[in-house]
């Protein structure tokens, strides 16, 4: 009997496919998310838009919040650790969370190195903007990926850019000859063996969700249509006027992302979505997606 194997860690993410993972900051929100049909919740101290507004250093959530959420729901619970913060990650693992997000939404603890995620029993999800970044994270042991997008903006444009980029680069790798892959690995900054595997599979060896800017049911469906395996929704739900209704609408739009009549129905009378931020108005140092190496 073996725990913490790649199959067990990646398999857990496979079970989340076609689903929505929602950011929550307390037990009450976690229950609303579960009731609405979320496949998992992300326990946080503050949602990304509040982190953005508050400024300062953003850290792992208070373990009390994480515990509260763990006790409130039967679906998996994820939590965020700072990039490279070995101890925050170990603490979350010890608390019993089901997945850790080594996340650029928090202030990085290490500006050079990510966690060696293969060292942990708990699986990790990491953000990516291109295939090189995706492959480096898998190389370190990430069992699931997500686009970075631009968290807390309610603006889908960066998530779209990232999923299109990753998928275009995968198509390129698949169409290349094997003797061209070492140079491609060098150019991408990606492990060669992983590119071989991607070429063989015709896709990433792990699940890839969309994150960072999903603000409406149509945004969620758009990301599914562009090839995401599922969707993370951060600030969008509990910053909306009617979170329960909004959460249900996002779940249904993700399942039936090509049923446009249904999405039209779902999108009616949802109230005002979160106010978005135009990306060009963000100073480069305010862009969370730039964090990660």
């Amino acid at each position: 009997m073996k725990t913490g194997t790649d199959r067990v860690k990646r398999g857990m993410a496979e079970m989340q496919k076609g689903g929505v993972i929602m950011d929550v900051v307390n037990a009450e929100q976690a229950k609303i998310a579960e009731e609405a049909g979320a496949v998992a919740v992300m326990a946080l101290e503050r949602v990304p838009s509040d982190i953005r507004a508050a400024g300062g250093v953003a850290r792992m959530a208070d373990p009390r919040i994480v515990e509260e959420v763990l006790n409130a729901v039967s679906i998996p619970v994820m939590a965020k650790a700072r990039i490279g913060h070995i101890v925050e990650a170990r603490v979350l693992e010890a608390l019993g969370v089901d997945y850790i997000d080594e996340s650029e939404v928090l202030t990085p603890a290490d500006e050079e190195f990510h966690l060696l995620k293969s060292d942990f029993t708990v699986p990790f999800v990491c953000g990516c903007r291109d295939l090189g970044e995706a492959a480096r994270r898998i190389g370190e042991g990430a069992s699931m990926l997500r686009t970075k997008g631009e968290p807390g903006t309610g603006n889908i444009v960066e998530a779209v850019r990232h999923i299109r980029k990753v998928n275009a680069q995968i198509r390129k790798v698949v169409s290349m000859n094997e003797d061209e892959l070492m140079t491609e690995a060098k150019l991408l900054g990606a492990p060669f063996e992983l590119l071989l595997e991607i070429k063989r599979l015709g896709r990433l060896p792990v699940v890839n969700f969309a994150a960072g800017g999903v603000a409406t049911p149509a945004d969620a469906a758009l990301m599914m249509q562009l090839g995401s395996d599922g969707v993370f929704v951060g600030s969008g739900i509990f910053k909306s006027e009617n979170p329960a209704k909004f959460a249900r609408a996002i779940v249904e739009a993700t399942t039936h992302y090509q049923d446009y009549k249904l999405i039209a129905e779902l999108s009616k009378d949802l109230g005002t979505p979160m106010k978005g931020i135009e990306i060009s108005s963000l100073a480069p140092e305010a862009r969370m997606q730039e964090r990660g190496w």
């Binding site: 725990t3 067990v8 997945y99």
Partner: peptide
Amino acid sequence: RNSFGRQVDSFEA
């Protein structure tokens, strides 16, 4: 449900 524990207890056999 979840009778073998949380994700860290998930296993192959």
